[in-house]
Design a protein around this nucleic acid. Sequence first.
DNA 1: GAAGGACAACTTGTCATGCAACCTGATAGC
DNA 2: GCTATCAGGTTGCATGACAAGTTGTCCTTC
Lengths: 225, 225
Amino acid sequence: MKVIPVAQRTAAEHVRSQLVELIESGEFAVGQRLPSEAELSKSFAVSRSVIREALHSVNALGLTRSYAGKGTFVDAQFAPSQLLTGKYLPRDLHEVRRTLEVPLAALAAERRSRTDLKAMTALLVRFRDEQDPSIRVGIDADFHVAIATATANPLFPRLVSELRSVLQEQAIAAAAVPGRAIQAADEHDAILAAIAERDANAAANAMKLHLAAVEDTVTAPGRRK
Amino acid sequence: MKVIPVAQRTAAEHVRSQLVELIESGEFAVGQRLPSEAELSKSFAVSRSVIREALHSVNALGLTRSYAGKGTFVDAQFAPSQLLTGKYLPRDLHEVRRTLEVPLAALAAERRSRTDLKAMTALLVRFRDEQDPSIRVGIDADFHVAIATATANPLFPRLVSELRSVLQEQAIAAAAVPGRAIQAADEHDAILAAIAERDANAAANAMKLHLAAVEDTVTAPGRRK
DNA sequence: GAAGGACAACTTGTCATGCAACCTGATAGC
DNA sequence: GCTATCAGGTTGCATGACAAGTTGTCCTTC
């Protein structure tokens, strides 16, 4: 019988998981500087080597970034998933978005709480007021994530925000197109209205129209084939 | 104007990316032992500390595993995505599956090539012949991934296989339920038939029925609330 | 007082060395 | 043939040292 080697924790692994936990729990907020290697060495009661190995691991995971002479800073609260790394066609990415977000709008319409509604409304108000395209893109992303959150299934917001981060570059370009902002705001309103009324079909339709408009804008309607 | 600090490569980062590349390219195959830290230290002309920091990073990414006294072994060719790590309710996972795979079946029906069809057929034949439940689960997973592949959108198979790996434990338990195997095979056949006939609606329906049956089996139909 | 430069203190990056713990295979003894 | 021992290789961890980058402070100078 083959004995499976028990993966017993090394000190470095222990420190790494502790650090990851501290970051993911928000104890170490994004942008914050971590304690220096020397301090961590004292805190964890291990040598600086171990701390450095753990720190390099956390860096590799994409959670932090170290700068010589300055320190190590939290870069993201959660490890960006490697799921969508690689070069995918914008068309394929949009298709995934469509496949996912249209039914999500319907689910959100059925399940949204009053809190969800308030959050979404607030985002849309900010969206209309905001002039800077790059900031508007961020609000837009938050709105779509908010819809996913309203489905009460925690997996959906993760998937949606993941997709958004991949599509971000294109989204910024699209947001800069003249007139697009007002159009987008109207489309968002339609989605929100349907969700507010708990009309699943209308929500799905509104989302479908919105995504089609976005894709049209991004793929430069001038040069169709 | 804010100057973005240029993330210049440290030696450890360089070694890490080299190792990752070697593993992903297959130069270091899964199961293979990596050169010892001392050897790598010579090869890369850096100290053992740097090698260790890089090695710990690759470990953290899930590509390798180190054992004291033995060496470091390649564990996976690609970093498993961290997207779905965490504790999610089976109900939520199944909902994601439903949301995703039902429309995928429709897309597959519209776009499948003859090659896709042959691959799927072969998998179903193997599925019926296989007695071992744990192996059957693997074939089942491959079948669902094959459907996603037939959509001609490379993102879908990645998403589906990711979901499957999370659901694997439950899937094995479900596959062991008496009679379930034959039922599952019939459901698979229905899906395949619809895809073969390019009937998108039928494919979506068949998939919907299949997933509902799976979820019923997994959630132990005895204890409904 | 304001501006600028020198300097000290702190930070990460890298190297070198030593030793403990662990695993494997060879070897000697029974 | 079987077992015990041992030697050599491997990773895990600690310590010390120095280079290089960053930042705040103090002091000089105007």
